[in-house]
Write a protein that binds this DNA or RNA. Structure first.
Lengths: 103, 103
DNA sequence: TGACAATATGTCGGATATGACATATATTAT
DNA sequence: ATAATATATGTCATATCCGACATATTGTCA
């Protein structure tokens, strides 16, 4: 890309990187998403194995059934924080939490 | 606790539980905080080992030096999400991330 | 089948985390 | 010692995530 063109784009608020940077970002992003999906699946698995309803889990974490549903659906508005807090509420020990990240 | 008293407290916005519930909450809360602190420490360690400044890391994750400082200081306004995203930006593979959780 | 419980989906106002900025303090190099 | 660089701390407007609610859809069991 021409330097002058790049300056104009940057002035307009665009961050200009190269293709590698772009791919790198995608890679981080997808690793992050995958992480959340993994926790989603495991949360549902864990909840079911404990014979808890979504409403029941919601009560435990002082949330709502709909948010629990979103957690388990991998809804993008759900944070890692909430997923982890939920798993902790289900007495998941740290070492098990660690295993869940990669399974 | 008297039922009538409990009702008054609940009306005033207090959730009344028993001691076990209270301790349980504290336990979850502290596990969560400990988790974040562990990631904080490891993020700083990793950043330093890569000879990156806070400003440099901030650039990588499109954040600011001050937020990176807060991450490493274990500031409570920093989310797990941001910590994890930062570690991913430093190319931490999932299996390593998992290990960090328990060390 | 129909009733009832469980889960999914959309929306919203309020709560919290965010990047940015200013500026103080600490560390490093000359 | 002092200049330059790095890090810490406080604040703010905005963006994002939250619980709650309404309601649709799915699952279950008599």
């Amino acid at each position: 890309m021409e330097k002058s063109k790049q300056k104009k784009l940057e002035a307009a608020g665009w961050k200009v990187g190269n293709a590698a940077e772009f791919l790198e970002l995608n890679e981080q992003e997808s690793a992050y998403i995958e992480l959340k999906l993994t926790l989603s699946r495991n949360l549902q698995k864990k909840r079911r194995s404990l014979k808890l309803t979504q409403h029941g889990l919601a009560r435990l974490i002082k949330s709502s059934q709909s948010r629990v549903a979103k957690m388990e659906a991998g809804d993008p508005t759900v944070s890692l924080d909430l997923l982890v807090k939920s798993l902790l509420a289900l007495k998941t020990p740290a070492h098990q939490l660690a295993r869940l990240l990669i399974r």
